[in-house]
Design a protein around this nucleic acid. Structure first.
Lengths: 113, 113
DNA sequence: ACCAACGGTAAGAATATATTACCGGCGGTA
DNA sequence: TACCGCCGGTAATATATTCTTACCGTTGGT
């Protein structure tokens, strides 16, 4: 199903990025047959591979997985937060705080290419 | 690494969606231990699972994988409330906003189990 | 006490992946 | 022609992961 579509879009993205399977594999520390099998739809893509592939190919993950492009950047974010906060339920705030802790805990991570 | 972050966000998303591991597993035709192991960061998430999970939980894939959401706008009413939380850094605030949006989205979803 | 649901995890079977190697095709070039 | 280097596909098998069932302790309700 969407596995094949993902495979196809991964191949398209790689080609649009002007990379061979070998080049992509080398850059990501993967083996070339892995790329080949993935693009053939015979091999699953792990979520962290998906991240690295999308990043290397310069596309958004949602384009790989769903074929959709996400638009804008977060700008007026803080304003947004304020309003949303006011209508949140207590349990949601609790979950939110847990998430904040999580964010804090994983703060020193790298995500860029 | 990001595998653990993904695991944490998957758990957060599930909880915010108000689903137990068993409910989520049943809905997606997965086994409960699979969800458990994924959320513990011991099991890889396949790309199609990622798709289904994000969909079920009512969050965007990019939030799961990268902790980011590209989305719209809101107002400025309760700015003060947000500022209270704003001993955080900008990047954390950004993540916070994304989380809030996610929570709101899940509220209107199929909250019930 | 019971019961039901939750989430964690152990263990062996089943499946998937990693890694190496080999294949044929294709452009260039001598 | 032959040779070369790079490309992408794939076979083989040792290794790793996942599936599946089952059991555990905890919690909340009756």
């Amino acid at each position: 199903m969407s596995k094949l579509e993902i495979a196809n879009r991964l191949r398209s993205a790689r080609e649009m990025a002007g990379l061979s399977q070998g080049q992509a594999a080398k850059r990501l520390g993967m083996h070339r047959p892995t790329i080949s099998e993935i693009e053939a739809g015979r091999r699953n893509v792990k979520s962290d591979e998906l991240l690295k592939l999308a990043n290397l190919y310069g596309v958004e993950i949602t384009w790989i997985t769903e074929g959709k492009v996400n638009e804008d950047k977060i700008d007026q974010s803080i304003l947004a937060a304020a309003r949303e906060l006011s209508s949140m339920k207590d349990e949601d705030i609790e979950a939110l705080i847990n998430t904040i802790k999580m964010i804090k805990a994983s703060e020193n991570k790298d995500g860029k290419n």
